[in-house]
């Protein structure tokens, strides 16, 4: 069975890119355009992993991360953003991984695989 992952990003282009690229990796990819939409989808469905953008209008990624970890403690979250410095920020400590956004998705793909493989063991 394909692992189900939720991509949360306010940029349509990036959502579509992630979807195509991650589908090629054999993943079942679902999309959310905002933090609110993401939380609503998480209530209805069970996911294996979330890829979460930090900087979004409305509820930002850090807040989404906090709520996710409160409710679904074991659901892995990968934070993705343009900024390196969030790495050191308090709010990001709870995430399972941190990826700097780039048109080269190798790092993201490897990170997803690593986390899913660890979860399977």
């Amino acid at each position: 069975m394909n692992e189900k992952i939720l991509v949360v990003d306010d940029e349509e282009g990036i959502r579509l890119l992630y979807k195509e690229e991650l589908m090629d990796e054999g993943l079942d990819v679902h999309l959310a355009a905002s933090g609110e939409e993401a939380l609503a989808k998480l209530e209805k469905d069970k996911f294996d992993l979330i890829v979460l953008d930090i900087k979004m209008p409305g509820m930002d990624g850090i807040e989404v991360l906090r709520r996710v970890k409160e409710r679904w403690k074991n659901l892995p979250v990968i934070l993705s953003t343009a900024y390196h410095h969030y790495k050191q920020e308090f709010g990001t400590w709870a995430s399972d991984a941190y990826v700097v956004k780039s048109s080269d998705l190798k790092e993201l793909k490897t990170t997803i695989k690593d986390i899913l493989n660890t979860g399977r063991k």
């Binding site: 282009g13 990036i14 195509e20 690229e21 956004k101 780039s102 048109s103 080269d104």
Partner: peptide, 14 residues
């Protein structure tokens, strides 16, 4: 600029 750039780059690679 980064976000649209990322989709331009990503889709071009595809």
């Amino acid at each position: 600029i980064r976000n649209p750039l990322m989709s331009i780059g990503g889709f071009t690679k595809r």
